[in-house]
Design a protein around this nucleic acid. Structure first.
Length: 551
RNA sequence: GCCCCCGUAGCUCAGUCGGAUAGAGCACAGGAUUCCUAAUCCUGGUGCCGCAGGUUCGAUUCCUGCCGGGGGCACCA
């Protein structure tokens, strides 16, 4: 039923009746202060240039129009400079409960995305070691964003770009081979730029088992390659498991190597060259990214003949668009922000609009324990990895915490706090609201109370301020989904849910449900709780957090 | 030096498109449960929205400069 829509429609009718244009700067939104009604609009003020009249006078005309045209409105007031404050009837809000119950999991689904194909590429960490907590934040953001976009009506797919070619993988193979030789008692030294984590030794053991007698007898190149393959398989299996445990789905694992083997990178080179966007210089092959605002041109093929990471990444993005994606979203660590202008340039050189690529930068996570910073060095600290953190605090708490801040601001992740069941850690506050409601339902079932269908006559019992506060917030849930999708910011959902849970807890404390004064009120309140539980479930689902029936 | 992000209550942070007296939680103090889960609720007060200009009916929000914190400036990824 959408209060905004109802009001906007009535306002638009007024504007066109007068033969005026709807001003872009018009806002129709809930005011900060409840005293100003349910929705406020600045229309009279932004209409002033066209109306050529005192905004207050225009406001009077608008108010009169609304009172006549909109039966759902209980009051229309004018306040301040010329704000128009609209208050809806209780009956209007009460319908929200029925809507949420009837729509169920679909409540809050929108068609804003109009089926537009969006790819969310996220995590995409090199398979050279286990995922750490920073990857975890990117994982939570990417997965949740995909869920939100789907709810908003986009056809969103998820993908992991697997850097299985190139220098880092060779270094990985070398690292494992050195450790394997050391395990064999040979004299071998780990080069400076190799991977030093203890997990490399574990992989070396596996390589030795799997290679049998053949591995020690191999020549250097063959051994390194064998070790690289074993390492990649092992580490990737670990990454997949970690992501699964963290409830992150990647529908496609896209191999960089496959791109190279299919000649896609060379194809992209030729495309760029033919359009004058690339050239040879100093023995290297360059992309003219400065044509699209980058600071300097970028190398695609180095003078030693090897390719840069950027080269295959361009080919990969080209492939994404060729597969029909209208919009490509990349989730990157904020330390890669310097990479944005060149990727944007590449996308434009491929013939797309700059807006067809959205890069979400995820800031670093500051891992703490009881306020003390835990060093995030290369050494294997106890809770450095995503898997360890997950085991320690649980996926629900970890995900909610990651999604409780704007992704581009730094996040303190304190293991002590995230384990705690306090308002420092709102995940339990929200989950508890859901569990409490279900506890009432269990009791209702025990007592043989059946709420029946949420008809208007019953819902009319929801007429107190507390009832209406809750109803109004439920009505705004679709707006929350719209905002989160539009700004690609999952944290809006966590804030919404924390607020909704607060309203529920307050309501619960004051209003007895099963012991309400009469049977109709009991049923009405059960409906209100059912609607609230539904919205909590829907919202938590967007964050990938469970909604437990009991705690 | 250049570029990006951040700066809002003692702490951690919200505040798409400029709006009315700038919000929440935590912390601190006091109170609430013979009753559907007290993992809850209620009552207390706090702000030169980093600083200085500009844009306008109106700026925490937009623009410019400066200060402070973080990050990035590779023929690495």
């Amino acid at each position: 039923m959408r209060a905004n829509k109802a009001l906007e429609t009535a306002l638009a009718a007024f504007v066109s009746e007068r033969g005026w244009q709807w001003p872009d700067k018009t806002t129709v939104e809930p005011p900060k202060d409840k005293r100003f009604g349910d929705l406020a609009t600045n229309l009279a003020m932004v209409l002033a240039p066209q109306a050529k009249a005192n905004p207050r006078a225009t406001a009077e005309d608008i108010a009169a129009h609304l009172r006549a045209a909109c039966p759902d409105l209980a009051a229309v007031d004018i306040a301040g400079p010329a704000f128009i404050n609209a208050t809806f009837t209780p009956a209007f809000w009460q319908k929200t409960a029925a809507e949420a119950i009837e729509a169920g999991a679909a409540y809050g689904r929108l068609d804003a995305g109009a089926g537009k194909k969006v790819m969310v590429e996220y995590v995409s960490a090199n398979p050279t070691g286990p995922l750490h907590i920073g990857h975890g934040r990117g994982a939570a953001v990417g997965d949740s964003l995909a869920r939100i976009l789907r709810a908003a009506g986009y056809d969103a797919r998820t993908e992991y770009y697997l850097n299985d070619a190139g220098r880092q993988m060779r270094l990985l193979g070398t690292s494992v081979w050195v450790r394997a030789q050391q395990a064999l008692g040979r004299d071998a030294e780990l080069p400076e730029d190799c991977y030093k984590g203890d997990y490399i030794k574990d992989v070396a053991k596996i390589a030795l088992e799997r290679g049998g007698d053949a591995l020690p007898a191999m020549d250097e190149a063959a051994a390194v390659d064998f070790c690289r393959q074993v390492a990649q398989d092992e580490i990737l299996a670990g990454i997949k498991k970690d992501l699964e445990d963290f409830r992150c789905e990647h529908q496609v694992w896209f191999s960089e190597k496959s791109l190279l083997e299919a000649g896609k990178v060379e194809e992209t080179f030729e495309l760029l060259r033919s359009q004058g966007r690339a050239y040879d210089k100093d023995g290297a092959f360059w992309f003219r990214s400065t044509d699209f605002g980058d600071d300097k041109d970028r190398v695609l093929r180095k003078s030693d003949g090897s390719l840069t990471y950027f080269a295959s990444d361009i080919a990969y993005h080209d492939d994404k668009y060729r597969r029909g994606f209208d919009l490509v979203v990349d989730i990157w660590g904020a330390d890669h922000h310097g990479y944005v202008p060149r990727m944007s340039a590449a996308v434009q050189a491929l013939g797309r609009e700059a807006g067809d690529l959205r890069v979400i930068l995820v800031q670093l996570v500051n891992l703490l324990q009881g306020g003390e910073q835990i060093a995030m060095s290369t050494r294997a600290g106890k809770f450095e990895t995503l898997a360890d953190v997950c085991a320690e605090v649980g996926a629900d708490a970890a995900r909610f915490t990651f999604l409780s801040r704007k992704s581009d601001s730094h996040l303190d992740f304190d293991l002590e706090l995230v384990k705690q069941r306090s308002m420092d850690n709102p995940v339990y506050y929200v989950q508890y609201a859901h569990a409490r409601i279900n506890s009432v339902f269990r009791k209702a079932a025990d007592e043989g109370v059946d709420a029946g269908r949420p008809d208007a006559a019953t819902l009319a019992r929801l007429d107190t301020e507390a009832d209406l506060d809750l109803l109004r917030h439920l009505e705004r849930y679709p707006d929350c989904v719209a905002t989160a999708a539009e700004s690609m910011s999952p944290h809006h959902v966590s804030y919404y849910l924390t607020e909704l849970a607060g309203l529920l807890h307050r309501y619960y404390t004051v209003n007895q449900v099963l012991a309400a004064p009469d049977a109709d009120t009991v049923r009405a309140r059960l409906h209100l709780l059912a609607a609230t539980a539904q919205v909590i479930r829907n919202g938590l689902d967007l964050l990938g957090v469970d909604a437990p029936e009991a705690m």
